[in-house]
Amino acid sequence: MSWALDHLSEILTRAGQHAWLAGLPLVLGLVVALPLGWLASRTSWLRASLLTTTGLLYTIPSLALFILLPSILGTKILDPVNVIVAMTIYTVALLTRTVADGLSSVDPSTRQAAIAMGYGGFARFRAVDLPLAVPVIAAGLRVAAVSNVSIVSVASLIGISQLGYFLTDGYARSFPTEVWVGIIACLLLALVFDLVIQVISRALTPWTRAVAA
């Protein structure tokens, strides 16, 4: 405990770095997954190929990705951009299916009414399908957030600063307290992400609580 207090500023710095490395890809991944999921939900032949491809991306080991990306992107190995790109790929892998499922979960009679009012393509996506898919997408985001927080810690193996450092460093020094601090800090960070996503999702979906009100 005293170790944690002594190192509070370092913990906070690394937590901030961790949050950035895990959080920014969540946003970027969502931005990419939305159009992909939309395409997948509209065209049945695209659906299969898109979902298989993005699903496969998730099976690439993170360490391999962190090491391979610099040669693909032309970045330095220590450049945090590698981690951001890798995490974005994982987020896209997780979210594309969720977005596609969310968008196609709209009640058929609601969809038909929308079509009959002359809502076409993008307008229907924006005004009807997307708002109704928010709860499903938020659930997917929560999974992706936890997954991101845990995968980012692996990046300490290639020397990029974040909470994972306490795990590798604590292990190297045989100092369990430091490992515990790293684990707990990761947990807390994941919780914060989860909370933020829930709050945003609730704010966007007042109608889901209408029945209870």
Binding site: D107, R111, Q112, A113, I115, A116, M117, G118, V128, P131
Partner: peptide, 21 residues
């Protein structure tokens, strides 16, 4: 097609209201 559809009211079995509005 949008003009055509907006010139016609359409009512269906389960109303098909937008649950989020």
């Amino acid at each position: 097609v949008a003009e055509l559809r907006r010139g016609m009211g359409y009512v269906i079995q389960h109303a098909g209201l937008f649950p989020h509005r």
